[in-house]
Design a protein around this nucleic acid. Structure first.
Lengths: 167, 167
DNA sequence: CGTGAAACTTGCCAATT
DNA sequence: AATTGGCAAGTTTCACG
């Protein structure tokens, strides 16, 4: 399915990714116009990015707040032995959990949860609590989410880059 | 720009959202076929969902790991007075920060960060540390992320849900 | 909300530079 | 490897029932 990318992404690839992350339904014609390339040329590049798994799909972005889930929270799990959420539950059991990350440290997972209300969240929290200790952080507001993946700084002159990182 | 939805989402709306979250480039014809509705009818519904802000856009999904950012981490900020990240910095200053949430509790923000390496992350952490105390959690692996927004449980028998989640 | 037809746009393939 | 041209297919969108 997912072939390796023989060559790292060049500037044109990144420009394609930038455009497609902004509008995933651009036609090859329009996309080619924006990055100054012919439709067949962009088509081949996009196909290559897809096969390499860099582009994993095209999706409509749904605003959770407008779709009945105004409340977002992070829940860190420190599961008890034999009760680990990851091993005793499945995705269908927790539709409210939209992200699951296994993490370092003494905790075992970081969850992002979306609920319809505080009451709803309370219920989810109780159910998650059956697996072990939990630590919840309720989101008050979100500055941004789903920021596009950008090219590495060293590949381009990026005027806004203020300070370099240590090596 | 963003009008309110006069009526809550009905079953057809949710089926449209499910399909479009699975493939954002479906034609009205194919989309209509899948939910048993005529192309003009779905087009109208989709347009309404867009104008209501439920669908905020269509984007290509880029796999950060395949695009040079294999490392994900969460960083909780407890900013010092007058040095709050949210007030002293701009998005361009931290391209590695892909999410910013203001949160409850004694912390002020939860960040999701993507970097090219541990060294890169170390640098970001140092820079963020200038704003105050930070608490970092490195992601070891991700079960899933970007799970589709689903209809509230009470509205449907969940049997009709067919789309799989990523990973 | 469904159907049908017209017009547009797109994607694809060939040949060329 | 990328550009140009043309053709075929699909899609959108309108008017009407």
């Amino acid at each position: 399915m997912s072939f390796r990318m023989e060559r790292p992404l060049d500037e044109l690839d990144w420009r394609i990714l930038a455009e497609l992350q902004g509008d995933g339904r651009l036609s090859f014609k329009e996309l080619g116009r924006r990055i100054s390339l012919s439709p067949p040329a962009v088509a081949e590049r996009v196909r290559r990015l897809e096969q390499a798994g860099v582009i994993s799909g095209y999706r409509a972005q749904v605003e959770p707040g407008r779709a009945g889930y105004p409340l977002t929270a992070f829940v860190e799990m420190r599961c008890s032995l034999g009760k680990c959420l990851l091993k005793t539950s499945r995705a269908e059991d927790y539709p409210e959990v939209v992200e699951i990350h296994k993490v370092s440290g003494d905790r075992c997972a970081m969850l992002k949860v979306r609920t319809a209300s505080l009451e709803h969240f309370e219920g989810v929290q109780e159910r998650l609590g059956n697996h072990g200790e939990i630590r919840s952080t309720v989101v008050l507001s979100t500055q941004y989410e789903g920021r596009p993946v950008e090219p590495p700084a060293e590949d381009f002159l990026r005027a806004s880059r203020s300070e370099g990182w240590r090596r």
